[in-house]
């Protein structure tokens, strides 16, 4: 009964835009879907856009970190974009720094970052 988040493909990049407050099962489904789609499409990069998310708790945070780790094994780079300031402050307070996940301010920057692999600009959290 849980809805599935669409995974879009733009060139060799997969784009996931999370628009609503997700229940835990949808979060797990997304993680699974993404791994499958990476293999299926041979994508080089994954951009997860969380601009619309009002909170990221430890469950979603863990999914983001795990997804980044899984994609790396599957030879795709993950960039997390659009985290709101209040969400970032809360995550830090919660004790989650998402080590190893690359981040960018906006979708545009995230895509640009994947375009020039290893390029400078935004940070690695």
């Amino acid at each position: 009964m849980s809805e599935r988040i669409p995974v879009l493909r733009i060139g060799d990049v997969l784009l996931v835009s999370i628009q609503t407050d997700l229940e835990d099962q949808s979060v797990l489904d997304l993680q699974e879907d993404l791994a499958e789609r990476i293999v299926e499409t041979g994508a080089q990069g994954v951009v997860i856009d969380i601009t619309a998310l009002e909170i990221v708790d430890s469950f979603v945070g863990r999914m983001l970190a795990t997804t980044a780790a899984i994609s790396r094994i599957l030879d795709a780079e993950t960039v997390l974009v659009g985290m709101r300031p209040a969400v970032a402050i809360t995550l830090v307070e919660l004790g989650l720094s998402l080590g190893g996940v690359r981040t960018a301010l906006s979708l545009e920057r995230g895509l640009a970052m994947l375009g020039r692999a290893g390029g400078v600009g935004a940070g690695r959290a």
């Binding site: 909170i55 990221v56 709101r84 209040a86 969400v87 402050i89 809360t90």
Partner: peptide, 8 residues
């Protein structure tokens, strides 16, 4: 920020 912290 406090809203976000509490909801989280």
């Amino acid at each position: 920020v406090d809203q976000t912290k509490l909801v989280t």
